[in-house]
Write a protein that binds this DNA or RNA. Structure first.
Length: 419
DNA sequence: TCTGGGGTCCTAGGACCC
DNA sequence: TCTGGGGTCCTAGGACCC
């Protein structure tokens, strides 16, 4: 059966969110920075026109921004997450089959829709009116081609944020204009290898022999070739599958040397990871703690542990993480980042009984404590109950020098209208 | 002086099994 | 001299995505 996929892709999402609450940013070059104000992760069209690349380190562009009047903002994830939630909800109410793909992208299956074009036109208008966020829609017989359609729509103002790609000639025409690394699933590494074999434009990959591509590269790349030929290989994934791993980590606000500081940071990451674990009703069979040290990009060392039984409670995770960390730590090292990964995740309900008699008393105590540790701060404020290790240091925390208020998610920061 | 954080999937190779 | 042929599972590492 012929398929029709529609990609809904927010334009410059983080910048667009900032503009909702600060219209004076409209028409100006604006960028949003990553955590720690490290690099540039979102750019307005005006900023793109100035030649500012995605992912560039902020410190290299600071001077240029001053000269050109570019506004740089720290990222405000509470705001972006909230706006994204509203937008996705709107999509789910408007379309039958939706896959939320990232904070600012979603797929809609329009295969059964009698008129995808008018549906898309109305949807785009509705999103703009209800959320204030501009989006671009790419519509095509495969996901890879829908990405191509949207990419071209973003480059071509005449298309007004919408592009349908169906005819073979139209598709070929589009693929002739794109480099192979502009395709979904092809990064710099693969592009370099493809170029060695004379495949440099997207159209060259479409015309390559899929079986040869599979042999030389991978099945994934073979599927991309089929997708470029309008044969769908990547379907819509509607059911939100639980995560397979949970990672919580950060680059520190400054270089750290002391074990106590690292312990405080790690305790924080464990709590974050455990919160997510509970949110999905999962338990972790394995945990790994890692540290990065030395000059950028640095060396990463990690230590893992496999629990006898999958574990979900914070206290148990904290204990183990702390001892893994202490085993990894070496004095005199300049640490720049740490983190915790939980993997081998299972639903809490498929708990396999232990061969050993359970330590019921201890488990009950832990469960109560873990519950308190999570609930109390939620109800009474962040600092009401914390783990001792968290108090060992604060220097790992991030610098946010240019953050805008949490307009939609904190009562104290809701915008006020002055009479 | 400054370089994000959170994910997924695939592959190759080793250990082990019958 | 001759040294099988299938499997499975696990892990590390590479590549990609937003």
């Amino acid at each position: 059966m012929k398929k029709t996929f529609c990609l809904v892709d927010c334009d410059n999402f983080y910048v667009s969110c900032e503009r909702l609450f600060n219209p004076s940013l409209e028409g100006k070059p604006v960028v949003v920075l990553s955590n720690n104000d490290g690099c540039i992760v979102s750019r307005s069209n005006e900023a793109k026109l100035l030649g500012i690349p995605m992912g560039a380190p902020f410190f290299r562009w600071k001077e240029f921004f001053k000269q050109q009047g570019v506004v740089a903002l720290s990222s405000n994830y509470a705001l972006y997450g909230d706006i994204s939630g509203r937008l996705m909800q709107l999509l789910e109410e408007s379309a039958p089959c939706v896959e939320i793909y990232s904070i600012d992208e979603a797929w809609i299956d329009l295969s059964a829709h009698p008129s995808p074009e008018s549906f898309a036109r109305e949807l785009r208008e509705k999103i703009r009116r209800w959320t204030g966020i501009p989006v671009t829609l790419g519509i095509a017989p495969t996901k890879t081609l829908a990405k191509v359609a949207s990419k071209i729509a973003k480059k071509t103002t005449a298309l007004k944020g919408m592009n349908l790609l169906f005819g073979e000639e139209e598709i070929d025409q589009a693929l002739r204009t794109l480099e192979v690394d502009e395709l979904w699933g092809i990064g710099a590494r693969l592009a370099a290898k493809l170029k060695e074999r004379g495949i440099s434009k997207a159209i060259d990959l479409k015309n390559a022999d899929p079986f040869k591509i599979r042999r030389l590269f991978s099945v994934m790349l073979e599927r991309t070739v089929w997708e470029l030929r309008a044969i769908s290989c990547f379907g819509l994934e509607e059911n939100v599958s639980p995560p397979k791993q949970i990672l919580s980590s950060q680059t520190f606000g400054q270089t750290l040397f002391s074990l106590d500081e690292l312990r405080a940071a790690t305790a924080h990451f464990v709590k974050e990871a455990a919160r997510k674990l509970r949110q999905f009703g999962l338990a972790a069979h394995q945990m790994s703690v890692f540290l990065r040290h030395g000059p950028f990009p640095g060396y990463i060392e990690s230590a893992s542990f496999r629990f006898m039984e999958p574990i979900g409670d914070v206290i148990g995770l904290l204990e183990k993480a702390d001892s893994l960390l202490q085993a990894l730590y070496k004095p005199q090292r300049a640490y720049t980042k740490s983190g915790v990964i939980l993997f081998d995740l299972l639903p809490q309900s498929c708990h396999q009984a232990s061969f050993w008699p359970p330590e019921e008393e201890k488990e009950r105590k832990y469960a109560t404590l873990s519950h308190l540790l999570e609930e109390l701060p939620k109800q009474k404020g962040k600092l009401t109950l914390r783990v001792g290790t968290e108090l060992l240091g604060e220097n790992w925390r991030l610098r946010f020098q240019r953050k805008t208020p949490s307009y939609t998610s904190r009562w104290e920061e809701i915008p006020a209208v002055k009479a």
